[in-house]
Design a protein around this nucleic acid. Structure first.
Length: 532
DNA sequence: TTGCAGTCAATATC
DNA sequence: GATATTGACTGCAA
């Protein structure tokens, strides 16, 4: 009955749960001839002949660092964990193993040729990107991902960073040959990996690829080879182009990659990249603080006031929200590890509000999320801001607007025809102020607060924290076997602590004052609602 | 339609 | 030159 149903009404892949995908993977394997004629275990029966026999195979994914939730953490969590309790279905795991030989991820084909550089991009757009694995089966990466146990994304990226830096391998090369991603994406991924459970299937792909790569004993060697070949090719091209007196196309960034079909698109005038001025960003951030989910009208107002396209404003909000969210993930992780070390705030407590530490900056997101309370970067005004904002709408402001789950309701703009824009609000000022160079009168705390940070070096010295913290950790101790060593590197934690303490104090003070005000407000207005 | 995830690719920064 | 940042885009889901 199930089979009939499945065959006649298959659900789209994306709608299937991991479990639900299992039969399709089996079918695919069967179609590929991978499963032979062995008797597959049905449902609860774990080990049919075929699967049973393969459980002894090495599972490259399992070799890697499987995250704590899924693996009984032993001191050497990177060792194969055949007994992992993780999988809801052992059989899937077995399939994973079946599919995953210790495979060299780099070499694409047996013909000795390295994967054609153009491969990754080309195949990338395909629905089922074939892994550049010479490995055993033609299983697509998606299938591997679907079957993969939970991976420790932080551990993986950390190790990858280590390997890359230790061997002087670039992100671009790694990204393009191993992950099929561009340098920027790789950088982002390595610096701010999301936890496995927050990743979509697609988002897990690169991590699976990384894990496979890490498990490849010849990974570095192969990448080195690639590097050499790239260099050779580049030299060749240069020479030939020089001798041919070619107008020497710029040493294409992607080297031999890409350019699949785009030597000419250069002609069609490219849209110049929009670069938002600091003041504009400040204004947007302030708008965000008020309404992380501005209404179309607000967006339009914003766009008008800042003289930007509405799409730019929309994009900015999307990007900002999602980047803040990512920062928060990291904060949570870091906080978690810190918490273990005896840090004060519990992760659960912080997950609600913005995580304090990455001190806003690169993650001004965090700062923004935290709203006025965050203080870190703008301590001086934070009080004022807090006053201005907390008092009127305590609930909204204390709450972490965006955080993991967009709690649109609390901050969404919808109605308020006036929206945040009503009143000059935070938005209007900077733009106009910039224009006039003379920041309008102290319209409100927020405005002035934003104006200042715009120029103040203190606020501007934002970028480093999160990434630097992560990178610092990358140079820290090795052996990312256990969760602690992955996330809570003693050194790193120590460094953080010493650096954060003053900030923490400030924050604590700030929070206290906010709480205090909230309580006051609560006692005045709606005591019941504030019961919590 | 809206929001999000993931990514690209231009640009900034180191 | 390598890496980080970020505006824009695509595809998907609710």
């Amino acid at each position: 009955g199930s089979v009939s149903d499945m065959l006649s009404r298959p659900k789209p892949w994306s709608k299937l749960t991991q479990k639900g995908r299992e039969p399709f993977i089996r079918m695919q394997l069967w179609l590929n001839g991978e499963l032979g004629q062995g008797v597959l275990p049905v449902q609860g029966q774990q080990q049919g002949p075929v699967l049973h026999s393969v459980t002894s195979l090495q599972d490259p994914l399992q070799q890697g660092c499987v995250s704590s939730e899924s693996t009984p953490k032993t001191s050497a969590s990177c060792s194969p964990a055949p007994e992992s309790p993780m999988s809801s279905s052992e059989s899937v795991k077995s399939l994973t193993e079946l599919v995953q030989q210790p495979c060299p991820p780099i070499e694409a084909s047996k013909d000795g040729k390295p994967p054609e550089p153009s491969d990754p991009p080309a195949s990338d757009s395909q629905p089922a990107t074939p892994l550049p694995l010479s490995g055993h089966s033609a299983l697509s990466i998606q299938e591997l991902v679907a079957m993969s146990p939970e991976l420790d994304t932080y551990g993986i990226t950390k190790r990858v960073k280590e390997v890359l830096t230790d061997n002087n391998l670039g992100q671009r090369l790694f990204g393009e040959t191993i992950l099929g991603l561009t340098q920027g994406s790789v950088s982002d991924l390595l610096a701010r990996p999301k936890p496995w459970h927050k990743l979509s299937l697609k988002g897990r792909e690169p991590f699976v690829r990384m894990q496979l790569w890490l498990n490849d004993p010849n990974n570095v060697e192969k990448l080195m080879d690639m590097k050499r070949m790239e260099k050779k090719a580049y030299m060749k091209r240069r020479h030939s182009s020089v001798s041919d007196s070619q107008p020497c196309e710029p040493p294409s960034v992607g080297t031999e990659y890409s350019q699949g079909a785009s030597p000419q698109p250069q002609h069609q005038l490219k849209k110049p990249r929009v670069v938002l001025a600091p003041e504009e960003k400040e204004a947007l951030k302030r708008a965000y603080q008020q309404k992380p989910y501005p209404s179309p009208k607000t967006i339009e107002d914003l766009a008008t006031q800042l003289n930007l396209k509405t799409s730019t404003v929309i994009n900015w909000f999307h990007n900002y929200r999602s980047r803040i969210r990512r920062e928060l993930f990291i904060e949570e992780i870091q906080a978690g590890s810190q918490g273990q070390a005896g840090a004060s705030d519990s992760p659960s407590a912080r997950s609600g509000r913005a995580a304090p530490s990455s001190e806003g900056d690169s993650c001004d997101g965090v700062e923004a999320t935290e709203g006025p309370g965050s203080a870190d970067t703008e301590e001086p005004k934070s009080q004022g801001e807090a006053e201005r904002e907390e008092a009127p709408r305590p609930a909204e402001q204390t709450e972490p607007p965006p955080s993991g789950t967009p709690g649109p309701d609390d901050a969404r703009d919808d109605d308020h025809e006036g929206g945040p824009a009503e009143g000059p609000g935070p938005l209007s000022s900077p733009a106009t102020a910039t224009a006039t160079a003379a920041p309008a009168a102290p319209e409100d705390a927020a405005t002035s607060a934003a104006a200042a940070p715009g120029e103040g070096p203190a606020a501007r010295s934002s970028a480093p924290p999160p990434s630097s913290s992560s990178s610092s950790s990358s140079s820290a101790p090795r052996r990312p076997s256990s969760l602690q060593s992955l996330f809570g590197l003693p050194e790193a934690a120590g460094a953080r602590d010493s650096r954060d303490n003053p900030l923490r104090k400030k924050k604590a003070a700030n929070l206290n004052s906010i709480i205090h005000r909230l309580e006051k407000a609560a006692s005045r207005e709606e005591p019941i609602e504030w019961e919590f």
